[in-house]
Computed example of a mutant assay.
Amino acid sequence: MKKSMFMTIYIIPMILISPFIMTSSNSWFSIWFIMELNLMSFIPFIIFFNKFYKELSIKYFIIQAISSSFFIFFSNMMLINFYNFKLIFTLMINFSLLIKMGTPPFHNWFINMMNNMNWINCLILSTWQKIIPMISLMYMFNMYLIYLISVLSSFLSATFGLNHQSIRIIISYSSINHLSWMLMNLMISELTWLFYFSSYMIINLSIILILNKFNIMFINQFFSLKSNYKMNFFILFNFFSISGLPPMFGFSMKWISINYLNLNMIQPILIFMIIMSSLTFLFYMRIYTNLILNFKSTNKMILFNKFKNFDTFINLFFFISFFNLWSMSIWIY
């Protein structure tokens, strides 16, 4: 069977439908089974579309298999009425799910894989593959552990992402920072978590598809887009959005999360996360600088005419990226 047919018939439907099957599961064993199904469906993506597929596939399999083993073992132990050890079992189940998501201090495998995979696999790993662990974490979590991991994720992502030229590593640390907000949201409200995750996935999708199209891996490669004004504008405002800069679309998901978290959690933690999110703006600044310098020597009237001639598809996504969808807050509230 050809590779494309195998991926189209078996793998892609399996990886797309597994999170939806998981939401209808009513036992820890069925959740574990769907996790393994999702694991085995992502490995062909790694094998078929990456240069270092042997190392990446083995590393991903070992990490996910170990965390799945912890998950199924301690979830079975929960069925036994050891009330003195219930807290320990809950913590171990949480740790197994956090390892699957790549949260600090278990993030090294996630950064390494993101730095060695192609853009489409990076998109899947940073968004779609986090759905099942996060929904599983909603069923049983320790509040103080989530507070600790969220604070640690915010701090490490804001500090470790400052000195990198690789855009894949920058996107990785950005994903960890957004993951800290998603972890806080899933404790408070499933609706705010869904809105935040959906918004992040849309913005991430729009950025990675363009980076994949032009095969951009490092910051200095943005100069290759010097004559492509459409893509420069599109990438610039999408990076503004993912960094949470108002009045971009990405700011609305942070704004709604801050309003909800302000009413339901410890204020110092929220303030710390806001400060750390502001620091992530610094490692996006180098990307902004490279993109803005592409317009430095351009005749502004020519640039305006090129901007008017955008095709309809680019105009639509540019509009979505630039303006906040403030109407989304109506049904949230």
Rank of each mutant, 00 (worst) to 15 (best):
Y147G: 00
Y147W: 08
I149Q: 08
S150F: 03
S154D: 04
S154A: 13
S154E: 06
S154P: 02
F155V: 14
S157W: 13
A158K: 09
A158C: 04
T159Y: 15
T159F: 15
Q165F: 11
I167A: 12
I169S: 05
I170T: 07
I170F: 01
I171W: 09
S172A: 15
S174W: 02
S175E: 07
N177M: 09
N177W: 01
H178S: 14
L183Y: 07
M184I: 10
M184H: 07
M184Q: 04
L186R: 04
M187K: 09
I188C: 04
I188Q: 03
E190Q: 11
L191Q: 14
L191D: 12
T192E: 05
T192I: 15
W193C: 05
F195P: 03
Y196I: 09
Y196M: 08
F197S: 12
Y200Q: 10
M201N: 08
I202E: 02
N204L: 09
L205G: 11
I207E: 01
I207K: 03
I208M: 14
L209A: 11
L209R: 10
K213R: 11
K213N: 03
F214D: 00
F214C: 05
N215I: 14
F218C: 05
I219R: 08
N220K: 15
Q221P: 00
Q221S: 03
F222V: 10
F222N: 02
F222A: 03
F222G: 03
F223V: 13
K226I: 06
N228F: 14
N232W: 03
N232A: 02
F233S: 12
I235R: 06
L236I: 04
L236K: 03
F237T: 15
F240E: 07
F240V: 11
G244I: 02
P246D: 11
P247M: 06
M248D: 00
F249D: 04
G250K: 04
F251Y: 07
F251L: 08
F251A: 12
